[in-house]
Amino acid sequence: MDFAYIERVLPLYERAAALTVQLGMEGILLSIVIGLVCALILYEKIPVLRRIVMIYIEVSRNTPLLVQLFFIYYGLPKIGIVLTPEVCGVAGLAFLGGSYMAEAFRSGLDSVEDIQRESAYSLGMNRMQTIHYVVLPQAVSTSIPALLANIIFLLKETSVFSAISLMDLMFTAKDLIGLYYKTTESLALLVIFYLMILLPVSIVGAVVERRVRYAGFGT
């Protein structure tokens, strides 16, 4: 174990970790928004849009992120759309994550009993109010474990960003191995940095999960 080497490359790993976290977070936030919108469209059975969302979910969930990134980064310039690797990475992550988040929210929305909605309507609430005050709070609470699993999944998926020349943790490690041939040190640092990013997410997630488990009455 060459500690001088570790000391020397540590800043590179820190920069890579920052990139992984930043792009990961942006992608995740976008995918949550996309997912929520898609899930509500499905839940409210809005015509036409519902079909589009269903097609999107199938396409997104049944193609690997790597293929989506290749399409966005290497394919779109052929029709004149040139994006920076960073934007492509976030867009790819949001495209992939959106469908997973939609499915997570959908399961939450489905878990809210019909009687709840009917009760809300009978109290004179309109559709928006029902969604806002009755359905969503319970649905989100039920969805939390699935959402957290998706967040961790998406953070790990950032490791394919190397394909579009983003210096994320994975590519930094691979690149340093190619430059200095210190395989053991480079890979050990890679594992440690991923753990440093993902372990806190898991731990905080477990706490949040317990705190928000308030839904489920009326069943």
Binding site: M1, I6, T184, E185, A188, I192
Partner: peptide, 17 residues
């Protein structure tokens, strides 16, 4: 932070060995 990283490296190395 560095101390944690060194500890982590040692841990992974031992596991690896």
């Amino acid at each position: 932070l560095k101390r944690w990283i060194v500890l982590g490296v040692a841990f992974v190395l031992i596991m690896g060995l």
